[in-house]
Design a protein around this nucleic acid. Sequence first.
DNA 1: AAGTGGTCTAGACCACCGC
DNA 2: CGGTGGTCTAGACCACTTC
Lengths: 235, 235
Amino acid sequence: MAHKYETVAAGIRDTIAASLRPHDALPSERDLMSVYGVSRMTVRQAIAKLVDEGRVYNIHGSGTYVGSTDLFLKTPKLTSFTEDMMSRGFAASSRVLALTSVPATGEIARSLSIPVDSECTHIRRLRLADENPMAIEDVYLPREVLALEDFKLTESLYSQLDRAGHELHRAEQEIQAIALDDEQSRLLGVEPGTAALAVTRVSSSRRGQLIEYARTIYRADRYTFQLAVTRESEK
Amino acid sequence: MAHKYETVAAGIRDTIAASLRPHDALPSERDLMSVYGVSRMTVRQAIAKLVDEGRVYNIHGSGTYVGSTDLFLKTPKLTSFTEDMMSRGFAASSRVLALTSVPATGEIARSLSIPVDSECTHIRRLRLADENPMAIEDVYLPREVLALEDFKLTESLYSQLDRAGHELHRAEQEIQAIALDDEQSRLLGVEPGTAALAVTRVSSSRRGQLIEYARTIYRADRYTFQLAVTRESEK
DNA sequence: AAGTGGTCTAGACCACCGC
DNA sequence: CGGTGGTCTAGACCACTTC
C-alpha cells in the first residue's frame, strides 16, 4: 500500500462493509483526519476515489453518504474481452477464425490516421463465454504496431502490445444495433437477421498514438451494455 | 466565473485553441502558477477538469499534453432527450402517445424499489429529431414523485421534477439490441423486425431516491451510442 | 449558529522521465 | 541530474445544509 490516501480509502471501504448501510453518513472529513492521522486533503483524495467507484456520494453542507448497493456500477473501463467476461462471471475462450495481413480500408485508415491501403494485421476471433458463442471480434493493428509474424496465438493481445511498448490507455467506442448477416448468424449460432450489438472501438496509448481498431459483434440475447451516468451540474 | 480553478481552466482552454496542437506540451504546473497567480493545487484542479473533459492528458515525470482533437468524447452524461438531440445537432420535438396512471409491473417495481401494483404515472412519447421519428420513450414515475394530474404537457419533465424537489443526479443505463415489433416499427416508420437500440434507465436523486424508470427505443439507423473509456491502471 | 463539504494558499518531499 | 507531475501537510476562508 504505497500511498496514504489508498490506505484511508481502504479503511473507509472496510468501515462501510462492516457497519454502514446505504444512505448512512460517513464520519466527517475532519473526523477522518484524526482517525487516520492524515491531513484533510488526503482524506478528500480518498473520498474522491470512493466517489469515482460509486461507493459514496457527497452533499455539500451536509455530509458524505454510502451509495445504494444496487446501483453500484462504475463507469465502464477499457477491457479485453477476457477481462470483460471474467467480470460478468464467465470463462472466456476463443477460436481464431482468421489471421492475415490486409490493406487498410478507408474506414480503418481514417480511424487510425494511417494511409489507405497501408498494411495492417487483422485478427478475427470467435469469442466464447463458458464455451458458448458470445461475439465475433475483428481487430486491426497497423503493421508498425504489431506485425503478423510477431503475433503469438498463445498470449493475450493486450499483453503482447504492452511488451511492445504500446500499452493501451484510452478508447472511443460506438455502440450500434445491427441485424446479423448469414455468416455472422452462423458463427454465433442464431437465426439470420437477428438483432445484435456492434461495438466499434479505436484505442490509443497514453501518448495518443492510435493502436487498435476493433469491431465486436455480440449476441444480443447474451450481452448488454451497462453504464452509470451523472447529471452534468453545469457551472 | 465563480472559482479560480475554472478561470484557470478556461484560460488554458483558450491557450490550447489559440496556439497548441494535439500532443504539444502545456506549460508546466509551476509555470501556470505564476501565469495565473494561483497556488499549485488550483492549477492542478484546473488541469484535472480538463483531463476529465478529454482535452489534455498527463505523463508523470514528463508533462501535460494536448489530447487528439478527433478523440474528444467525454463520458456520457445524464441528459434529457431534448438535450441529447441538441448536442447531436438536431431539433427535438415529441408527440404524446399516452398519459395514464398504471400499476407498477414487477420489473418496474423492482427497479424503483416500490411495491408491485403501486400507482405510477406513465408517459409514452414519440420523440422526433428534425421532425423525423427517432425514438419511442416510456417513462414511469411513482405517483408520489409526480401524480398524473400534476404533469404539464407544456413543460419539460425534468424541469417539473426539479421544481418538485426531485432533481435527477445519477442514472444506471442498460443498452440492448432488440428487434422491433409491429407497433414499434409502425411508429418509427421502419420495417417490422428491424434492429433497434433499447436503453433502459433508472434515475435517482442526489440523495439516492429512485425517481424514474425509462425505456427508450431508438432507430438504429439514426442513433448510436458513443462513449470514451480508459484503462483502469490498477494499483 | 454550528457543522459540513468546497476552494485555496504556501510550502515540502517523492517518483518518474529524459538528457 | 534537472524538470515534471504525484502526494502530502497545516492551516484558512467560503458556501451550503440543518436546526
